[in-house]
């Protein structure tokens, strides 16, 4: 009576990935491919229907109470939209203290920890911004504060979901450089979720390309960008605009748009847009398998 019948949508299905300590991984894909859901799953903001997610050996699926809080201290998120990620009624000081309050850290330590996080993101002393509200700061400053908030707990793992896509182009590089410095200084493992190949190339050692809820290619970023193996990755690399005004663009090797995730094609999910699809692609879903040392792809034809 109360619950209608909903079509099941598998936003993410059969994603298999490992992130090593201190490694920076990029999740690349177009909107709707499940990269954000993957990021949310890794942080336990979303419950998977099946599967396991292990963090430092422990399965975080179904974690509760103190164990979940302990995990929250070690894994943090940087948001896409800094204008929405800070409570408009909280001063900057309160926003930065929030993780410390939640983690039950002694009040006396708050100031020192917040100052340390702010210096990591190159923001001036706490006194100058402590009593300000988010709407009084610029996007670039807010994103640094969002990053600082993620860092006050000294996490080991960071997920950044499109961390600069809402920022002006002029301040993107600054924020990205800060994130790189932070990663190197703290030895963070990080996942960057983005549709922007250039960003992933700039910050990530390893890249995973996702298409319609699956990982289709996985490898060192430079190798994936220079020599993409999966037909979708090839199209993605080719779609990057070239900075020549009058240069005509080769037509993309793929046509159409992403099919409805509620009703994906049988077999390989990319086959109806793939220029080289064969009969086998419709029958059998390709597994993500090793194609070269450190490189994996999910395609029958490789």
């Amino acid at each position: 009576m109360l619950a209608g019948r909903h079509p099941v949508l598998h936003a993410v299905d059969g994603v298999d990935l490992t992130i090593r300590k201190g490694e920076t991984v990029g999740l690349l894909g177009e909107s709707g491919c499940g990269k954000t859901t993957t990021g949310r799953l890794i942080l336990r903001l979303e419950e998977p229907t099946t599967g396991t997610i292990r963090f430092d050996g422990t399965d975080i699926v179904g974690l509760k109470g103190p164990a979940l809080r302990a995990f929250r201290r070690r894994a943090q998120l940087v948001f896409q939209n800094p204008f929405d990620a800070l409570n408009p009624r909280f001063t900057i000081l309160r926003a930065l203290a929030e993780p410390l309050v939640n983690a039950g850290i002694d009040r006396a330590e708050h100031r020192a920890r917040i100052e340390r996080a702010l210096s990591r993101v190159h923001l001036p002393g706490l006194d100058r911004i402590a009593e300000r509200f988010p709407h009084q700061l610029s996007g670039g400053q807010l994103q640094r504060i969002v990053l600082a908030r993620a860092l006050v707990l000294e996490p080991e793992f960071l997920v950044a979901d499109e961390p600069v896509s809402m920022l002006d182009v002029s301040v993107r590089a600054g924020v990205l450089n800060v994130m790189r410095e932070v990663r190197d200084a703290m030895g963070l493992a990080a996942v960057y979720i983005s549709h922007d190949l250039a960003l992933v190339r700039y910050v990530c050692e390893r890249t995973l390309v996702m298409y319609l809820g699956r990982v289709v290619e996985d490898g060192p970023t430079e190798a994936v960008v220079r020599d993409p193996q999966h037909p979708y990755s090839r199209a993605l690399v080719k779609a990057v605009p070239v900075p020549h005004v009058d240069q005509s663009h080769d037509p993309l090797p793929i046509i159409g748009s992403v099919p409805d995730a509620r009703d994906p094609p049988s077999g390989c999910r990319f086959r109806d847009r793939c220029p080289s699809a064969v009969a086998r692609c419709a029958e059998e879903s390709p597994a993500l398998r090793e194609i070269a040392p450190g490189r994996r792809a999910a395609c029958h034809l490789i």
């Binding site: 942080l43 903001l45 979940l68 809080r69 929250r72 201290r73 943090q76 998120l77 948001f79 896409q80 939209n81 929405d84 990620a85 800070l86 409570n87 408009p88 909280f90 929030e98 993780p99 939640n102 983690a103 969002v146 908030r149 707990l153």
Partner: peptide, 17 residues
């Protein structure tokens, strides 16, 4: 659905808070 509510959750805030 605002991101700052999500932010509170990811930093370990409970439902009551």
């Amino acid at each position: 659905e605002r991101a700052y509510v999500e932010a509170a959750r990811v930093t370990g805030a409970g439902n009551g808070r």
